[in-house]
Design a protein around this nucleic acid. Structure first.
Lengths: 225, 225
DNA sequence: CAGTGGTCTAGACCACTCC
DNA sequence: GAGTGGTCTAGACCACTGT
């Protein structure tokens, strides 16, 4: 008798990995497994649901549960606010607002936010122990935001996280060559490889913000599988 | 009366976002919430567990459930095998093995795999519609692997996914400038910004493989939040 | 030690979907 | 229509941890 849903999950994963349950194959249904493992069906359900969320199994009512043929690795990334990230490296975080202006967004920004009217553009340099860490370029839709705090004093990111309910958004990661502006701000040569994070956030009634973070070389995003 | 654990999760999330439950605050315990929502405690547990996994709540026995002060965004990345990724773009995938040699790993590789003895090094160029898509540099520990198939015919990645039980691993993302070898293979100028994915995989009895994927410019990793 | 979340059970009904 | 997973319940016991 196997005890606990985690043990059942592990046993199921073992059978998948040893191909006792081979890719594409339908495994026994929950009731049969519950009988085999000597537990309630809900416990089997918990274990198999976990494996399905991890991408090892595919479950459909009536059709049953199958072993995924090519498991898509699902990695969970933790994306902390910058201050936390800097502090996690044992450094002191500070930031400097380079500019803050009302600007009509260029077409790429307008289309990504689905918003053509004027936005607030704030450029901020984040520092770790006084050295450039990342350049933040943030577009804000002040039309639907409450009055903003002074960005010199408060991190806009943290203020938004705490004060603006949001509905949805996405994040993209890419690599780009530093342009002259980025190179100057981060103290690099033009063309240096930058790790770029770009986040969009939308409220139910419109876009909230678009943020582009250009990270200085050496930045790594890491996750366990 | 609120119906269904998802409705309860949504209601709890609403209270968090409207600061009805403010950051750092301890929310009512499961039993009280179950009474309020007119459902079983297990249903409340399901809803709150979901929010805790998403990073909105922190739960501890005896101490209760608190609203996270600075929610760490947890994004789930789907990391498909390269062939799938290429096909998802509507292109035809092919690959070309550039080299395959037994090599004593250089110190950075040896330390990352915790293995100093000879390894098999396979370099593969992945193509989308015949154009360079990514350069794969793979170190394999043949000492603990079953006999490998011919890498010209079979994608080593897919073969490993299907044939080697693994225990753990990690993935790192970064941006690096292309060296002359990478630039040549991918048809770029030296110094071009590459998006790098590096995966380590370990079996219980030793390292299995270290893979570095250098993606051609334009590559983006995207996830919804 | 006591309060809270974590898990389990046995049974029930429902929702989806394949046939 | 029937088989399977998805969810809910009411109650129970356990595991952790703050006091």
């Amino acid at each position: 008798m196997i005890q606990g849903w985690e043990a059942i999950r592990d046993e199921a994963l073992r059978r998948i990995r040893t191909r006792e349950w081979s890719p594409g194959e339908t495994i026994p249904n929950e009731e049969d497994l519950a009988r085999e493992f000597g537990c309630a069906r809900a416990t089997v359900n918990r274990a198999l649901r976990d494996l399905a969320e991890a991408g090892f199994l595919e479950r459909r009512r009536k059709a049953g549960t199958r072993v995924t043929v090519l498991p898509v690795r699902k990695a969970t990334l933790e994306i902390p606010v910058i201050r936390r990230e800097v502090e996690a490296r044992g450094a002191v975080h500070s930031h400097r607002v380079l500019s803050a202006n009302r600007v009509v967004p260029p077409p790429p920004v307008a289309s990504r936010l689905n918003h053509a009217a004027e936005l607030l553009l704030v450029e901020t340099l984040h520092l770790a122990d006084g050295r450039p860490f990342a350049l933040e370029t943030r577009w804000l839709n002040t039309a639907i935001l409450p009055p903003l705090p002074d960005p010199d004093r408060v991190s806009l990111n943290e203020w938004l996280v705490g004060n603006v309910p949001y509905a949805s958004g996405d994040i993209e990661f890419s690599a780009e060559a530093a342009d002259s502006r980025e190179a100057a701000a981060l103290g690099l040569v033009e063309g240096a490889a930058l790790f770029i994070t770009e986040r969009r956030t939308f409220a139910p009634d419109g876009p909230i913000t678009l943020v582009r973070l250009a990270h200085a070389p050496g930045y790594r995003l890491r996750t366990e599988v």
